[in-house]
């Protein structure tokens, strides 16, 4: 047993409620002691069922053990606790890619990129995925296997066509709760747009109420550069999702609805 594992084991024994199980589980996983790592992660999760880090750790261990379905479920659980957790989005994206569902893989990686546009590994993975998709499309025999590319392993130049897209969760006062919005040379415009969105929500409420259209549900906005979709995950928040114009608006709506469900769960955990 190495010194670091011995030290972490002792620390956990002295204080079973500490978060040392995260480090210990990861150390065991990296050494290939997967069964021991699994027990440590499970033990930690029994104490901290709502800790996204613990679900993330378990997902990595299960993935290493070859239990991809288990890893998928663990990352889904991590996202339930923390919808903005990019490691879980990357993990699920990777699993979708392995399963051959490139669209779903791209969707998850794009969400991760929207949340953390500075993570070069994600943009590189997206670029590699595009390359693999093109190669697949031009490959002759049907049924040829899709190359397995782990997002973390991918290496290619960042694609620039998604830099002004994003996801933004805003409170009723126009303050950003989560997410990013980048726009070319303007950089991160999230706070600026958030300030405008509080007014939009009030305006939408007033309009539907006074015109006898009930409660506002969604706003779909087409612009020459991108499509925007707004909805209110809770009465006091607005979620903005932006995608390129090639994505049909109805599909953008489905993506936004899913993001809103995640946001509702996340907001519930913040209370």
């Amino acid at each position: 047993m190495s010194d670091d594992i011995r030290g972490l084991t002792a620390r956990l024994a002295e204080e079973p409620s500490s978060l040392a199980f995260l480090e210990l589980g990861e150390a065991l996983r990296r050494r290939g002691q997967l069964e021991a790592a699994y027990k440590v992660a499970r033990g930690g999760l029994s104490r901290y069922p709502d800790l996204a880090d613990a679900h993330d750790l378990l997902a990595h261990i299960l993935g290493d053990q070859g239990d991809l379905a288990g890893a998928f479920d663990a990352w889904v659980e991590a996202l339930r606790v923390d919808p903005m957790r990019t490691s879980a989005l990357k993990g699920i994206g990777f699993l979708y890619f392995r399963a051959g569902d490139v669209a779903a893989a791209r969707e998850h990686l794009q969400r991760a990129a929207d949340i953390d546009p500075d993570d070069a590994a994600i943009t590189q993975a997206l670029a590699r995925m595009s390359e693999a998709g093109r190669a697949r499309a031009s490959a002759s025999p049907a049924g040829q296997g899709i190359p397995v590319v782990a997002p973390q392993e991918a290496a290619a130049e960042a694609s620039g066509d998604n830099t002004d897209h994003g996801l933004l969760l805003v409170d009723g006062n126009g303050l950003r709760l989560s997410g990013h919005l980048r726009s070319g040379s303007l950089g991160d415009v999230g706070d600026r747009v958030a300030a405008e969105l509080a007014g939009v929500s009030k305006e939408a409420s007033r309009t539907t109420r006074l015109l006898g259209l009930g409660t506002w549900q969604t706003i779909a906005v087409e612009s020459p550069e991108a499509n925007l979709f707004l909805l209110a995950p809770t009465p006091d928040t607005v979620l903005l999702t932006i995608r390129e114009t090639s994505l049909p608006m109805a599909r953008l709506g489905l993506i936004a609805e899913r993001a809103a469900r995640d946001a509702r769960a996340w907001l519930g955990h913040q209370e």
């Binding site: 726009s183 415009v189 300030a195 779909a220 087409e222 612009s223």
Partner: peptide, 18 residues
């Protein structure tokens, strides 16, 4: 909001109430 996000003015808007 669109201009704040670095875009031009919208070409179409759909506000859906229930």
């Amino acid at each position: 909001a669109a201009i704040g996000a670095g875009m031009r003015i919208p070409t179409f808007v759909h506000l859906r109430g229930n």
